[in-house]
Design a protein around this nucleic acid. Sequence first.
DNA 1: TCTTATTTGTTCGTATGTATT
DNA 2: GAATACATACGAACAAATAAG
Lengths: 254, 254
Amino acid sequence: MSINKPQAEFLQVAALLRAAIADGEFPPGSQLPSEPELANRFGVKRATINRALSVLRSEGLVRPERGRGTTVNEIPVIRRDTAGRQRRETREAGQARGAFEAELREKGLTPKTVVSVSEVPAPDEVASLLEVNAGDTVLARGRVMYANDTPVQLATSYLPLDIAAGTALAEEDTGPGGAYSRLAELGHAPAEFNEVVRFRAPSESEIRDLAMDPDQRVASIVRTARTAEDRIVEVNVISLPAHQWELSFNWSAE
Amino acid sequence: MSINKPQAEFLQVAALLRAAIADGEFPPGSQLPSEPELANRFGVKRATINRALSVLRSEGLVRPERGRGTTVNEIPVIRRDTAGRQRRETREAGQARGAFEAELREKGLTPKTVVSVSEVPAPDEVASLLEVNAGDTVLARGRVMYANDTPVQLATSYLPLDIAAGTALAEEDTGPGGAYSRLAELGHAPAEFNEVVRFRAPSESEIRDLAMDPDQRVASIVRTARTAEDRIVEVNVISLPAHQWELSFNWSAE
DNA sequence: TCTTATTTGTTCGTATGTATT
DNA sequence: GAATACATACGAACAAATAAG
C-alpha cells in the first residue's frame, strides 16, 4: 500500500480508501478513522487526507461532519423508471405518487413526501414552455421526497392558472390517479411527454433542501406534458442528487 | 465585489468568476488572467484561486493547463435524443451513425468517428445480460466520437459471436441502416430497448480517452436491445462527459 | 538544442475557525 | 469549559508542462 509518484497523493489515498470501503473494512454506516489517524496510516499530511475525503464526499460515498467524524453513507442507488410512471394503470394501481414510493420500497427504504401548493411567478424557462408571459402567475405544486428521512428528490410541477385554478389540481391531494387524471377530466389529457436531463452543480436551495455538498452534482430533469392539440399543460422540474439515482428508459422499435 | 464570511472564499471566488464568464468578460476560447493576477484582483492567496478554478474545471467551464494558462471552454452542450435514434427511418435517412452526426451538426460542430472491431472477453455485466459465461468471447464494436477534434463520447457495442461472427456486424462499416438493420436481416430484429443512466467518477481510461478531469463526472449508459423472442442481442456501453451533454427522451401516454 | 521565465499542480507546515462531544 | 474533529486559509516550496528566446 505504498504511495507512488505518478499520480497525486490525494488521488491515490482516495483510491485506497474507496477500495477499503468496497472491501468491507469500513461498512456502510460506520465511522472512518479521524483525519489525523488516517494521515498517520498513509504517511501523508492531514491536508492530503482532507482533500482525499472531499473526493469521496463529492461521489456521495462518505459524509464528513465537523466535530463528529466521517461516516460511510448507506443510501443505495435508487432506480427511476421514466416511461413507466405516466401510464394510467401504473398511476392508479399505486394510488397517487405510486411510482416514487414503489421505487423506494423496492430498495427496502421508507418513503415520505411533503407537498406544498402555491401560486408563484413563472420562472423564465417554465413561462416560455407554458406559453405565458415571463413572471405571470402559475400554479406550483412542490414536493420534497425522502428516503429514510434523507431528502432524495425535489419536484415542482407548474400548471397554467386558466386550467388549474379552483380545481382539484390546486389541492394538496389531487385524488385517485393524480394530477394527470384530473387534467384528463378537465379536457386536457396529456398525450405526449418529453424529459430533458441535464447534469450540473447544485443551487443554493438544492444544497440546503437536498442536504448536498457544493461539489456534488444534481441531475436536473425538465418534463413537459403535451395534449393531443399540442399544448403544453404541465412543466415538471425535478432535481435529484445524481450519485444516488439511476435513470431507466424503455421504448420499443415500433 | 467584497468577500464575506458565511461562505468559503474559494466558493465566492468561483461564483464571481462564473458570473464574469457568463457576462462575457471572458468569452469562450479566451484565456483567463494567470492565477497570481487573479489572486491580486480578488485579494486572496493563489491557493484559493487555484481551488476556485478547480471548481469551474469540474463543471467543464474552464480548462487550466500547466505552463499555458486557463482557457474558457467552447464546446456547447450537445443534446442526445434517446428514443428517436433507433427508429429505422432515422437510421437510414442519415446513413450509418446518423444520429450522432446530426446532433453535432445541429450545434455547428464537426463530427468525427473512429471505429475499431475486435473479439474480447465479455465484461461481467455484459456477460450476464447477453447470457453467456463470464469471460466468454464476444464481438466488441468500439467507437470514439469527436466534436471539433475534442472527444465527446465512447461507445462499445457487444454482440454474441453465434449471431455476429462472420457477418457484416464484424466489419468496420456495417452498411446502410447500421448494425440494427443487419441484426434484423439475420433474424434477430430488436423490438424493445432499455437504457440505464448512471452518473459516476471517470475511470482511468475515460480520463485518458475523453480528456477528462478526475473530478468531472461521466454519464454511463447501458443500452440493451431485445428481440420479440425476449433475447438480448446487443449491449451497448456508452460513456459521456456529463457536463457537455443533455439527454432527451420522448414517449406517448398510449 | 539549450536555457530561462511563466504558469499551473501538488504538498507541507502552520494557524485559525466552527461544530460536536 | 475542554477536548476532539473537520473546514479553510496562508505562506512557502518544488514539480511539471509550456512558451519564448
